[in-house]
Simulated assay, not measured.
Amino acid sequence: MDKVSVSAQEAVAGIPHGASLAVGGFGLCGIPSVLINALYEHGASDLHVVSNNCGVDGAGLGTLIAARRITRVIGSYVGENKEFARQYLAGELEVELIPQGTLAERLRAGGCGIPAFYTPAGVGTQVAEGGLPWRFDADGTVAVASPPKERRTFHGREHILETAITTDFALVRAVKGDRHGNLVFHRSARNFNPLAAMAGRVTVAEVEELVEPGTLDPDEIHLPGVFVQRVVPLVPAQATDKLIEKRTVRS
């Protein structure tokens, strides 16, 4: 039951080339930065990543994008990362953009064993009709486009079928966790972290504070340890090293 890894490097050492990864975080909030850096050092490439976005240039998943380690992304947002946008528009990266709520539910469904679900989100757009560019050719034409989605009407309203997402691995960050993998997230850093953790077959969690089993109140736990296979306790310097995406101060 003790799921603690000696280091982040040890925790990601088994991630192979071509693996699929669900990664928690929103912008730079709640990203598993230590695990991402360890994965960069590990050298795995041809990665298929599922994440709301890919950090920013030079931070978070942006480091893997810049190193050409990621070949496909399922996400909701490209902005704030110029190299991500450049690779996508140049045909160097395949990107499946989907509505943010749909992404969240596809991850949750994967974790719950639900193969697919119907949603009204995207009806009347290319999300439903197909034709969204997943990959461009070098000349700017569309090389791979999204397919049309199955439709069904419920109570007079049209819905489209979305399939669940599961991945080989998941990388997440929590403010607190115990040796059994039970996790607590801090406010907005909760974002996609529990959902990404649920979708991964092997989930690795970096935790700012490691506590002993029984310390956490059951009502305090946001994600039960059944979804987590490896726990990486951070040293104080790592726990406090948090980048701010857009710093706004009073003049």
Rank of each mutant, 00 (worst) to 15 (best):
D2S: 10
D2K: 10
V4Q: 10
A13G: 05
G14D: 13
G14P: 01
S20D: 11
A22M: 11
F26C: 07
I36T: 04
E41I: 08
E41H: 03
H42I: 05
N52I: 08
D57Q: 08
G62W: 00
T63N: 06
I65R: 11
I65C: 03
A66T: 02
A67V: 10
R68D: 13
R69C: 14
G75W: 03
G79C: 04
E80I: 02
E83W: 00
Q87T: 09
G91N: 06
E94C: 13
V95E: 07
V95C: 15
V95A: 13
E96D: 13
L97K: 06
P99L: 11
G101R: 09
A104M: 12
E105L: 15
R106P: 07
L107S: 02
A109N: 09
G110C: 01
A116W: 07
G122V: 08
V123C: 13
V127H: 12
G130F: 13
R135S: 09
R135E: 12
S146L: 05
K149H: 08
E150Y: 03
G156P: 01
R157M: 14
L161S: 04
A164M: 08
D168A: 05
L171W: 07
R179G: 05
V184G: 01
F185C: 06
F185W: 07
H186C: 09
R187N: 11
S188T: 04
R190A: 13
A197M: 02
A197R: 00
A199I: 08
A199W: 09
G200D: 02
V202K: 03
V211S: 04
L216A: 07
P218I: 09
E220T: 11
V231D: 01
L234W: 02
A237E: 13
A237H: 12
T240Q: 14
D241K: 02
L243C: 03
E245R: 15
K246Y: 02
V249P: 00
